Simulated assay, not measured.
Amino acid sequence: MPVVLAVPALIGLAFLVVPLIGMLVQTPWSTLGDQLFSQEVGQALLLSLVCASLATVLCLVLGVPLAWLLARSDLPGRGVLRALVTVPLVLPPVVGGVALLLVLGRRGLIGEHLHEWFGVSLPFTTAGVVVAEAFVAMPFLVIAVEGALRGADSRFEEAAATLGASRWLTFRRVTLPSIAPGVVAGTVLCWARALGEFGATITFAGNFPGRTTTMPLAVYLALETDPGAAIVLSVVLLLVSVVVLVSLRDRWIGGTP
């Protein structure tokens, strides 16, 4: 490699890797167990895992049909719909939280009626955490599944239709198995994104220990009061991110084994 490329490449690598190494060096390994199983850290871990999993389930229920709509339907304006679906990818998470408040808050367009008619209030609740995480994570699932649907061989579905299978049966028995790798990849990325969400969560759900304080929020709080706990939580999130990227390396980064 030419020196003119090697030098900035090494500097860029150091810029991205050295902070992570520094965090690992500063990790209080001797007290890692006590920190990890402390009440505050334990609550944040459990809440994060539960909310991220529920948000992923919500994304699967809504995102897979949405991906099918974008990939296979003849609906006019699919390009515009696809652009709208991907907006949360580039939208600042805090802005996403504000948008959720304006729609689902007690005085929001929909939230006002939910509160008046059914007594349901989503902001500043655990359910609000799930909604905020699903909002920012669903595009990852939709993009992955739509790509899998576009790449799938439609001849198998046509063959199933000629044999008398209904559309729903064909989707369950032919389409879903053929796009399973894409669904799995999108699900894992969706879960990881939900686990690391901060801006939309703190804006829409607040920061209440044991109820809405997820790991990213706990890191933010602990930096001022308990840096050791902040480092432990950060290392946990780092490990999750590394595991996700390594497991999906060939599919999303295009690397080779």
Rank of each mutant, 00 (worst) to 15 (best):
V4M: 05
A6V: 15
A6N: 13
V7F: 02
P8R: 01
A9K: 08
A9W: 07
L10Y: 01
I11E: 10
I11K: 10
F15S: 04
P19V: 01
L20Y: 13
I21G: 06
I21W: 01
G22H: 00
M23D: 08
Q26C: 08
Q26T: 09
Q26L: 09
W29L: 02
S30Y: 08
T31N: 13
T31F: 08
L32I: 03
G33I: 08
D34K: 10
D34P: 07
Q35T: 10
Q35W: 10
L36F: 06
V41T: 12
G42S: 15
G42F: 05
G42N: 04
A44E: 03
A44P: 01
L45R: 15
L47A: 02
L49G: 04
L49E: 06
C51T: 13
A52R: 01
A52H: 01
L54W: 09
C59S: 15
C59Q: 02
L62T: 02
G63D: 02
G63L: 01
A67E: 11
W68Y: 12
L69F: 10
L70V: 04
R72I: 10
D74T: 11
L75Y: 06
L75P: 08
G77C: 06
V80D: 07
R82C: 11
R82K: 12
V87C: 03
V87E: 02
L91K: 02
P92F: 03
V94M: 03
V95Q: 05
G96M: 04
L102T: 00
G108Q: 02
L109I: 11
I110T: 00
H113C: 15
W117G: 11
W117Y: 09
W117F: 09
V120F: 05
S121F: 03
F124G: 05
T126F: 09
A132V: 10
A137W: 00
M138Y: 04
F140A: 06
F140L: 07
L141N: 00
V142W: 03
I143V: 14
I143G: 08
G147V: 14
R150N: 11
S154N: 14
R155K: 10
A160Q: 03
A161N: 13
G164H: 09
R167I: 11
W168S: 12
W168R: 15
L169I: 14
T170H: 15
F171W: 15
R172W: 02
R173W: 11
V174M: 14
V174H: 04
V174A: 11
P177A: 13
S178R: 15
G182P: 00
V184G: 08
A185P: 14
L189E: 13
A192D: 10
R193A: 10
E197K: 00
F198W: 09
I202K: 02
A205H: 07
G206C: 06
F208P: 05
T213V: 10
T214R: 00
P216M: 07
V219M: 06
Y220P: 00
L223S: 08
E224T: 03
E224M: 08
P227I: 02
P227C: 02
A230D: 07
L238G: 03
L238F: 05
V243Q: 13
L245D: 13
V246D: 14
S247N: 09
S247D: 09
S247W: 08
L248K: 12
I253V: 11
T256G: 13
P257D: 13
